[in-house]
Amino acid sequence: MSEFEANVTAFMLVKTTPEWLRLTVEERVAAFENEVVPVIKSKARGVRSRFFDTEFYSARATDVWMWEARDHESYQLVVEALRETPFWDKYFEVVELLVGVENGYARNYGTRAPTSISA
C-alpha cells in the first residue's frame, strides 16, 4: 500500500484467549495469515496497522493493535472485517477501542501542535 496521511488512529486493546495460547507459534502465524489477513485485505482499503506486546506490563490487555486509517469509514470497515474472523472473540477478547485524531485540537484551532520531543 502506498503511503498516506492517517486521519484516524485507533488503539485496539486486546487480550489473548486460552484458545490462541494453545496454538503453537507456527499455528498462530498460519491462523493469522490464513484466517484474518485475507478478510481484512478484501474489505478494507486505506489502512495500516502496527502491533505492540503489552503482556509484560499489563494484566488487562496483552496486546495493542494500532490502526491508522485515511478516514473513519476505512477504520469502520476494518472493524467489520475483523468481526467476521476468528480474531474477534475466538483468539482475542477486544478489551477496549480508543479512537482519535492526532493533534485534533491543533487542527481545529489552526494552531501548532505541542510536542515534548527533546534532543
Score class of each variant (00 low, 15 high):
Trp65His: 07
Lys90Met: 04
Thr62Gly: 15
Phe87Asp: 09
Thr24Asp: 13
Tyr57Lys: 10
Ile40Asn: 01
Val36Lys: 02
Lys43Glu: 08
Glu80Lys: 13
Phe92Tyr: 13
Tyr57Cys: 11
Trp88Ile: 08
Val39Tyr: 00
Arg60Glu: 15
Glu33Tyr: 09
Ala30Asn: 14
Thr85Leu: 09
Lys41Ala: 09
Val64Tyr: 12
Thr24Met: 10
Glu26Pro: 01
Glu73Val: 14
Arg60Tyr: 11
Pro86Ala: 02
Lys90Thr: 14
Asp63Val: 00
Arg60Trp: 08
Ala81Leu: 04
Glu80Asp: 14
Pro38Ser: 04
Leu82Glu: 01
Val25Gly: 01
Arg60Ile: 15
Thr62Asp: 15
Glu73Asn: 12
Arg45Trp: 00
Met12Asp: 06
Thr54Ser: 14
Arg83Thr: 09
Val79Asp: 02
Glu33Phe: 07
Ala61Asn: 07
Met12Tyr: 04
Leu82Ile: 01
Trp20Gly: 05
Met66Gly: 05
Arg22Phe: 03
Ala30Lys: 15
Val79Arg: 07
Thr62Phe: 07
Pro18Met: 03
Glu33Val: 12
Glu73Ser: 10
Ala69Ile: 11
Glu33Leu: 15
Glu35Asp: 11
Ala44Asn: 05
Asp71Gln: 04
Trp65Gly: 01
Arg60Gln: 12
Ala44Ile: 13
Lys43Ala: 04
Tyr91Asp: 12
Tyr91His: 15
Arg28Leu: 08
Arg45Tyr: 00
Pro38Phe: 02
Phe51His: 14
Arg22Ser: 12
Ile40Pro: 06
Val78Gln: 00
Arg48Met: 08
Ala44Cys: 10
Leu13Asp: 05
Leu23Lys: 15
Ala61Asp: 08
Glu55Leu: 02
Asp89Phe: 08
Glu84Leu: 11
Glu35Lys: 14
Ala69Cys: 11
Trp20Asp: 03
Ser58His: 03
Glu68Lys: 06
Val64Asp: 10
Glu84Cys: 08
Lys15Leu: 05
Val25Trp: 02
Leu21Cys: 03
Val37His: 01
Trp20Asn: 06
Met66Ile: 14
Thr54Trp: 03
Phe92Arg: 01
Asn34Gln: 12
Phe92Ala: 10
Lys43Thr: 00
Val14Gln: 11
Glu80Met: 11
Lys43Ile: 00
Trp65Val: 10
Glu55Arg: 00
Leu77Met: 14
Met12His: 07
Arg28Ser: 08
Thr85Ser: 09
Val47Ile: 15
